Simulated assay, not measured.
Amino acid sequence: MTTTSRPAKQDRLRADVRDLLGRVGPFLVDGEWVHALDGSTLGTVDPSDGTTLATVAAAEGRDVDRAVAAARRALSGPWSRLTPARRGTLIWRLADLLEERAEEFAQLESLDQGKPQAAALAADVPLAAGQLRYMAGWADKISGRTATLSVPYTPARTTTPIPAGNRSAWSAPSSRGTSRSTWPRGSSLPRWPQAARSCSNRPSRHR
């Protein structure tokens, strides 16, 4: 069995992907790219050969507090004051941007997960874009009522927007991370297209 050397792998990467992997990946907090307050980083492992694929910022308690504070501020920020129709338009645009950079995201997904790039391009990225568009369509259609169930459980709901945390699955962060940030699975998760809630997202580590 033969393996591909790292220089050969790098030669096959898109220029924008090589540039991204060559930088320390920061957090996106309050609309700004920032590094860990204490400068901590961790390495993302290439599953094909065990080498370090990229270096990213590593969060600790103060970084989490900073992200939660930003999410709380967002509850009373410009997003919460947008009309539902405008929110839906912006989320739809996010799906458009994802598709415009589909090859870049597919290559990153392939490198990080060890899956064929063709699979990421044909499934993961389109699914993520599709989920965003699905939820964009709900932005002006949520009535706020809770359906009565035919089982002995009481459906939970909250009428007060709250910031929520999300940890995406390691096996398909682009599509499953998107679905967990948008899918209407209950009041504990952020239906932000409809309710103008805010979400703090953390990718999962698979090693």
Rank of each mutant, 00 (worst) to 15 (best):
V24W: 00
T52Y: 08
D140H: 11
K9H: 02
N166Y: 00
V17A: 00
S181N: 10
E104H: 14
R86W: 08
A70P: 02
L53R: 00
R101E: 15
R66M: 04
V34E: 06
E100H: 08
D19K: 08
L21M: 09
A106V: 03
A118H: 06
E104T: 15
G43R: 10
A139S: 15
I142P: 00
L132N: 02
V24S: 04
P84Q: 04
A70Q: 05
T146I: 15
T83F: 05
T44P: 00
K115G: 12
R12S: 13
A70H: 01
R93V: 14
D96F: 06
W183C: 01
P193M: 10
W33S: 02
P155L: 13
E60I: 08
D63G: 10
A118C: 08
P47R: 02
R18A: 09
K141S: 06
P184C: 09
H206V: 12
S40V: 02
A106Q: 03
Y134M: 04
R180C: 03
G25P: 00
I162D: 09
A102W: 03
A123V: 10
L98F: 03
C199G: 10
T3C: 01
S188Y: 11
V68G: 03
T178S: 00
H206E: 14
P7K: 07
R185C: 07
S110W: 07
K9Y: 03
A74M: 07
S179T: 07
P78G: 08
A118R: 14
Q194H: 10
P126Y: 14
G22F: 01
A164D: 06
P7E: 06
W170C: 11
P193C: 05
R207N: 14
L53E: 01
A195Q: 07
R101S: 14
G130V: 12
Q131I: 11
Q10H: 14
A102K: 12
D112G: 06
G130P: 11
L37T: 01
A102F: 05
D112T: 11
Y153F: 14
P116F: 13
E32V: 15
E32Y: 10
R202H: 09
H206F: 13
T52A: 05
H206D: 11
P126T: 14
V64I: 14
